[in-house]
Nucleic acid binder design. Structure first.
Lengths: 359, 359
DNA sequence: TCTTAGCACTCATTCGCCCTGAGTGCTAAT
DNA sequence: ATTAGCACTCAGGGCGAATGAGTGCTAAGA
């Protein structure tokens, strides 16, 4: 799509005005905005052209124009200028990043909340990319005669544990043997590879300890499964109600319901591709999002794991500002996870470097 | 407060009708409801009395009556009949309880979500009663020369771990020594007791390993702190918008905002007293809740820990049904945590008893 | 003395109506 | 190609009448 310079200026004026006010914008105010170099009639003609191109829409005959999803897409791809973060903004984000980021789950949850506060839109956060988790080692720690702790560590340095209570007693030596066996059998395997068949092999090898080892293996499987299972955290839903487009309850409710329920589903707009991704209106797959835009950024957790944070809002969204903030925040998270340092100000994990996260 | 039998019947009819419809109820419909044994005029007189007693209110002159908070309180205390759960209801709750309940944090979160689905109200969940956590044992597991896993177990069988990376290398023997030292020094202490002073003593004893041990101790403190720190999980906020009283955005928004933000605060209606607690309207401390009711139930996680789940809704709430469901669910959770068994249907943890929860 | 029928009164809500004003498309003049 | 002018459209706000649910009070009946 090639537009004249003038058309681009007009389109941009309309979109930015609409983003700011949520009101359809008329020819007169565009003329005003462009320093009255053109009359409103001329603008009207140009606007009619832009409408014919599918970049603008009319809510009704005698209202101004509003951008169509296609218009936003064009704006995002070609017209938008990167928003420069102010000192206050970067400082605020850095501040937020200095939170205690301890357990992975909490970080994700926390990050979502922070992003929501940063943008005044509902935000979501999820982790992904853990598909290829392999087991690095097991440790079994005796607690009582009939209870031990199982600690599983993956190659991405994620550690999980669980207390296991047994119906029968166990000696330290037995536990030791079991531990060795587990490490010998399962180290280096991914979840896919630990098929039921393999389980059977292991059980066979164990002889008497059949029940015991199957118990332990099923625990380990559970741990790995829980790592692979994505959880969508949402935060700041209430921000939705501040927006003029959601003053209308019929509009707000379905979206609200969708956003509070996706937590359970794994179906959420998956971010394939670059570190920054924008889905405008109908570009979203979920029905509830057809009239909203989703902006998301991914960040690096380290050791091959990635996280995604993003916001959901009306198609009229300040893409420039949001992308800037999100990108900066995601970048900060990446830095935090990988080197534990932040620009200016001492972080919580400066001295105590924590490579992976245990949860 | 002593009321005639007739007044009680009338009050109850009004409250239950209002709970069901959210519409002010007039004398005529009450007469209808009471099988026309009395004329509407008589009912009117009685209603005037009830209003004088502060149990009813008039939204305006020519509307019917609605219950006042005091009216609800009277209803809850004296008039309400326990709601019998239907087979479907109990089955649904049992179903929900059969979820994988692995890590404590997730259980709490999960429980909130389930309760919300069960009641169609926004729900919250929090854990409490972990104030007296004491350390039971430490384990340090070598991973690499400059990294180890620290596993802390408390006397309530909660296990947490973290991967610690060091600036310098460490031998297995050193780690062993450190481990012994930690156990000798800190076992059996609560968070309060591990004062900075004690830390200093430990560091002194350690001699060279000063930095190392302080690192480990500060981590242990973190773990204990995170156990003590309450997190409020909320779920099902969107249900609010389904209710007629929150069709009005001015009403919905502040409550919505409050509920999405309490997650950060520790200030939330704390449930002192019995297993079931109801706070009606102005009985709530938080301003945002002055026109809502909160119903909560506590359950036993075992080992001295308790959790609380509850719902938030308009003062017009089906207290009978909600309390029944909440009580049943809480009871189920208690059973699940303590014996891992559920009525009817095989649970996930039937055969593999899990005394505590590791996270 | 309690109950009830009847009646006048109140008041939130709904509906229809008109008016206003922003904005458009088209045409004719520059 | 641009612009001024004009007729036309239409959402939204304001206003007043009609509606009807519900009340309080009074007076008669049990």
């Amino acid at each position: 799509m090639e537009l004249s310079e003038r058309k681009k200026r007009i389109l941009r004026a309309i979109i930015e005005s609409y983003i700011a006010t949520a009101e359809p914008v008329g020819s007169k105010s565009v003329a005003e905005f462009l320093d009255r170099k053109l009359s409103s009639a001329t603008i009207r003609n140009e606007m009619a052209d832009l409408e014919a191109l599918g970049l603008l829409e009319k809510p009704h005959t005698s209202a101004g124009r509003i951008p169509s999803p296609k218009g936003y897409r064009f704006y995002v791809n070609e017209l938008m200028e990167a928003h420069k973060l102010s000192v206050q903004e970067t400082e605020r984000i850095n501040q937020a990043l200095r939170l205690k980021m301890e357990e992975l789950d909490r970080v994700i949850d926390q990050a979502g909340r922070v992003v929501s506060q940063l943008t005044n839109y509902p935000a979501f956060a999820l982790s992904s990319g853990m598909e290829r988790v392999t087991i690095r080692r097991f440790d079994l720690l005796m607690v009582e005669r009939n209870a031990f702790i199982i600690v599983v560590m993956t190659d991405s340095n994620v550690v999980r544990n669980k207390l296991v209570q047994l119906p029968s007693d166990l000696t330290e030596a037995q536990l030791q043997m079991l531990n060795t066996l587990l490490n010998a059998t399962f180290t280096g395997l991914t979840l896919d590879q630990i098929t039921p068949e393999l389980m059977r092999v292991a059980q066979h090898a164990a002889g008497d300890a059949y029940g015991l080892i199957s118990l332990v293996v099923s625990f380990a499987m559970e741990v790995l499964e829980s790592l692979e299972q994505r959880r969508v955290h949402t935060a700041g839903l209430a921000h939705l109600l501040e927006l003029p487009e959601y003053q209308n309850l019929e509009r707000a409710q379905p979206l609200m319901t969708y956003l509070s329920d996706v937590q359970d589903e794994n179906r959420f707009p998956v971010p394939q591709g670059g570190p920054m991704r924008i889905l405008i209106g109908p570009e979203n797959v979920a029905d509830a999002l057809k009239e909203t835009s989703v902006v998301m950024a991914s960040y690096d957790i380290g050791e091959g794991m990635r996280g995604v944070i993003g916001v959901v809002g009306p198609t009229r969204m300040d893409y420039a500002k949001i992308t800037a903030r999100l990108a900066y925040f995601a970048e900060g998270l990446t830095r935090l996870f990988n080197r534990g340092e932040l620009p200016g100000g001492k972080t919580d994990s400066d001295d105590r470097k924590t490579g992976g996260n245990a949860l």
